[in-house]
């Protein structure tokens, strides 16, 4: 299927023809693209941003808008390469932001998108902090709490944490994995997402 064939009536949501459909002006394909990638883009943008940086939402919109513009222009032809293109755009956009602290606005197509359904984003910082305190309260060993603080707050890498605290990777994985699972469980118990 080429970009010029007019695919507005094709109802195949798979990624294979998504690129061609958007290039052909199919608005439904644009929404399929957003539905498929929005949550992942938000999560990765947030990960590439500094903690709690409120710019993350704007950057995620910016990433989606930029990719969509390129898709509309037919600049992306290989649908298999689309995820890699989206990821590269995330990296470039967040890097540029931190170089220039410059905010850009997305095009109008994003204005009518449904609100994000990311359950985590529906929590405010106080709720998240409360959940975190519960997780930490269930770690009776001070060293295990220290592992999490060093990894998540100080952003030390795993090897550095293990070396500093004299623990092996097994213990590191166990503590971090359990804390993450407990945190996920608390998010679900708070009614956010399916367990």
């Amino acid at each position: 299927m080429s970009a010029g064939e007019g695919t507005a009536t094709v109802d195949v949501p798979g990624a294979t023809d998504l690129v061609a459909r958007i290039a052909a002006g199919d608005r439904r394909a644009e929404h399929d693209f957003i539905r498929q990638y929005e949550r992942g883009v938000r999560a990765l943008v947030r990960r590439h941003c500094r903690p709690n940086d409120p710019i993350a939402d704007d950057l995620a919109q910016d990433v989606l808008a930029r990719v969509l513009e390129r898709l509309r222009a037919g600049a992306i032809r290989d649908s298999v390469a689309l995820p890699a293109y989206v990821q590269a755009t995330i990296v470039h956009t967040t890097s540029a932001e931190y170089r220039a602290r410059r905010v850009t606005e997305g095009p109008a197509v994003l204005d009518d998108l449904p609100a994000s359904d990311n359950p985590v984003e529906r929590l405010d910082s106080e709720q998240l902090a409360a959940l975190l305190r519960k997780v930490l309260a269930q770690l009776p060993v001070a060293r295990d709490r220290e592992i999490l603080v060093r990894f998540y707050l100080d952003e030390q890498d795993k090897d550095e944490v293990c070396r500093s605290l004299g623990i092996d990777a097994t213990h590191f994985h166990r503590v971090v994995f359990r804390a993450r699972e407990r945190f996920r469980d608390l998010l679900h118990r708070a009614g956010l997402g399916e367990p």
Partner: peptide, 14 residues
């Protein structure tokens, strides 16, 4: 990844 991001943000904001 969202859960992990939230953990990081929670530590930073607590």
């Amino acid at each position: 990844v969202e859960v992990d991001d939230a953990m990081r943000d929670s530590f930073a904001g607590e």
